[in-house]
Simulated assay, not measured.
Amino acid sequence: MLAPCRVYNELTMNKQIQILYFFIITCILSCSNENKQLTANINMYSNTWDEVLNNGKLDLINDEHFDTNVTLLMSPENIVGIENVKDFYANYLNGFSDIEFSIVDIFGQGDKMVKHWHFKGKHTGEFFGIPATGKSVDIDGVTLIGMKNDKIALEQDFMDNMDFMQQLGILSNPDNVVVINTLYNAFAAGDIPSVLKLLDANVVWNEAEGNIYAKGNPYLGPDAVLNVVFTPIGKDYDYFNLENIELHEMYENQVLASLRYKGKLKKNGAHIDAQVAHLWTLKNNKIIGFQQYVDTKQLADANKK
């Protein structure tokens, strides 16, 4: 006959095992349900934004897919409510054509999700009051997402807004001035190879109309600039200096330089001291365009002496 204590211990142990089994099964079922819900949320979310942005179905921003108080976290003021969110994204659909929106990756836990997205489009319409620029944009970003009762309740986007504005041509790349300053320093040191390296392979170069070096305008590519502008200047002048250079950052990735040419012609010893402006256009830290403005009468008169 089993001792009472032993019987009690065995019963207690069996009870504990049953509780443990119940706990494990509950956790498995709970995790399974959570995973199913997360999968459903991801599918609904992904399909909704695919239809809205790629197919222009703005009316899918409704109370079937979005919480009544859906909120876009923004600075300086959040956007709250389905109609306001719809108005916000209407700017993208009206402002861009050839839209390609894709979710690169999306994952989450519970009611919280994170997506990595990619957006491409051409700015052909008004975008938050900005007139069409005709520029194409190609931008990546990340969004933090909050779900509530199987609906989209919260979004917060993170993206490089400066890069976005630069691609639109609204802001210029701050490195542009550095590139042009580097070019003038290389020119001053007589380092023409370094100057040419800063020119895009398809650079379009225009000397001022009336300048003796402008006969073949526009010159295309670094070799043409070297052969028709830089080399002749080296042959024609005892010295040719760029002085009093001031750089001014412009919009659409342009830099305006105001300066003076000071030089001495070899053939007659005539001196020049001319007021000049250079307009540089850049893309991806390379010079794609140049336009010279100069007192061409002074240059012509010096060549006649």
Rank of each mutant, 00 (worst) to 15 (best):
G141N: 04
N54V: 05
I233F: 14
D150K: 11
M113L: 15
V7N: 12
Y92R: 09
D295E: 15
T182L: 04
I130G: 01
N54Y: 14
N69A: 10
V70H: 12
E207F: 03
L73I: 02
A40Q: 12
K15N: 14
D200E: 03
I145Q: 02
K135R: 13
V204L: 13
N43V: 01
M44N: 12
E207D: 06
Q18V: 08
E126G: 01
P193S: 05
T143N: 14
L72N: 07
G134C: 06
F230Q: 08
D238R: 08
D105E: 11
T39I: 01
N14L: 13
D67Y: 11
D163Q: 08
Y21I: 10
E10V: 10
F119V: 07
K264M: 10
P174F: 03
A132F: 04
V195D: 07
V179M: 01
A153L: 03
K15C: 07
N84M: 05
I106K: 13
L53E: 06
L242C: 04
P4D: 11
N253M: 10
K148N: 13
M250C: 02
L2E: 14
G95F: 09
N173R: 01
V225G: 05
A208S: 13
Q37Y: 00
E51D: 14
H248C: 06
L72M: 11
N161K: 09
G190C: 09
F164I: 07
K304T: 12
E64N: 04
K122C: 08
I233E: 15
D301T: 08
